[in-house]
């Protein structure tokens, strides 16, 4: 929905005058920088962007973007963003949330946004910890995690965010990593381009309370074996030599070595429009033997809530002869007192 006659923006146009107050070394800086870098390219007027956030470290994001922004209350950003979008469907609405905000206190609103498919872009920064409240386990923390509130290890089984939103009916599901700036830019651009709710999870390092949560995905030595880069229509291969692939053994994904026994043709080919593949991929997360899928897991076209709503309203307007509240007031059983 690019606007016509949009002036050329630079990254500076999207930086607000507020000093950024995340901890030095926080992964959030990278996400802010990539967002500010991508936005001038989207061809939309600056005043049509709205950032809505809840509570948490990630939720300070809107203050640093020189767009319209609303830093709201814990967990409710998606609900508030829904109101913004329904009031004015022409706006480009972005939700910034975290694993605590979006999956714990706000989990209910997150899933319902997914099934409604409003054209809202959700950026969930997943650092697998509560940062703002100084280090308690979050809904994505691994079981057994030692934190201030779980001195003997947390008892909760973690949420898998992408499996959750796929189950809730999301139409665009993707994941990136804070250290992968180019890839993140691409994912932000893809999120924007998707008409309907987009859900982009960013693996984000909290260097204070959960440092190294994604080391295996970012360290040079382990990265190639730990990350499965997804590309639509391409075989799912990984490893420093690109010699490992994901293959289906019946319904079960297995890792195969490409060489004598298995060729590239034997490896599963990614199809962004295939829900079964998306589910299978999302469930590789937390399976220690498998690489973590990064990229667009799922993307399908589906009608948006706001389009359906406006269609109903327009149809009702067309069909009704009651154009004013006065017409309703005067209709039905009335009588005249003289």
């Amino acid at each position: 929905m690019a606007d016509s006659a949009v002036q050329t923006y630079s990254r500076a146009d999207f930086s607000s005058d507020q000093s950024v107050r995340w901890c030095p070394g926080c992964g959030d800086y990278a996400i802010l920088a990539q967002t500010q870098k991508v936005f001038p390219e989207l061809g939309i007027k600056k005043e049509n962007f709205v950032f809505i956030s809840g509570i948490g470290c990630s939720s300070r994001f809107p203050y640093y973007m020189n767009t319209y922004g609303f830093h709201t209350i814990h967990g409710r950003a998606t609900a508030i963003a829904s109101g913004v979008k329904l009031a004015n469907p022409n706006l480009s609405v972005w939700v910034v949330t975290g694993d605590g905000d979006g999956l714990s206190i706000g989990g209910n609103h997150t899933i319902h946004l997914m099934r409604r498919n409003l054209d809202i872009n959700v950026m969930l920064f997943n650092n697998r910890i509560y940062g703002l409240t100084k280090g308690q386990y979050s809904p994505t923390s691994e079981r057994g995690k030692i934190t201030k509130s779980s001195p003997m290890g947390s008892l909760d089984c973690p949420f898998n965010p992408l499996t959750l939103v796929l189950g809730a009916g999301a139409t665009f599901v993707a994941r990136t990593i804070d250290r992968e700036t180019k890839h993140m830019q691409e994912m932000i651009t893809r999120s924007y381009g998707h008409k309907g709710t987009s859900f982009l999870e960013t693996y984000q390092n909290c260097n204070i309370f959960n440092n190294g949560a994604y080391t295996s995905l970012t360290d040079k030595g382990t990265k190639a074996d730990s990350v499965l880069w997804l590309e639509d229509g391409k075989p799912m291969v990984f490893g420093s030599e690109k010699n490992k692939g994901i293959r289906l053994d019946g319904n079960k994904p297995i890792i195969v070595e490409i060489g004598d026994k298995w060729g590239l043709d034997d490896v599963l080919v990614h199809d962004e429009s295939d829900y079964v593949i998306a589910s299978l991929l999302s469930n590789l997360t937390y399976q220690s033997d498998f690489p973590d899928p990064i990229g667009v897991l799922y993307a399908i076209e589906s009608v948006t809530y706001e389009d359906l709503m406006m269609a109903q309203i327009n149809e009702a307007i067309k069909k009704s002869d009651k154009k004013s509240v006065q017409d309703i007031l005067n209709s039905g059983d009335t009588w005249i007192v003289e």
Partner: peptide, 20 residues
């Protein structure tokens, strides 16, 4: 019709922010 009372209120705040 929101998913709960909180979301109902939240959506109203969002709509008010956007001019409804």
């Amino acid at each position: 019709q929101a998913e709960d009372e909180i979301a109902g209120m939240g959506s109203v705040i969002g709509a008010a922010f956007a001019g409804d």
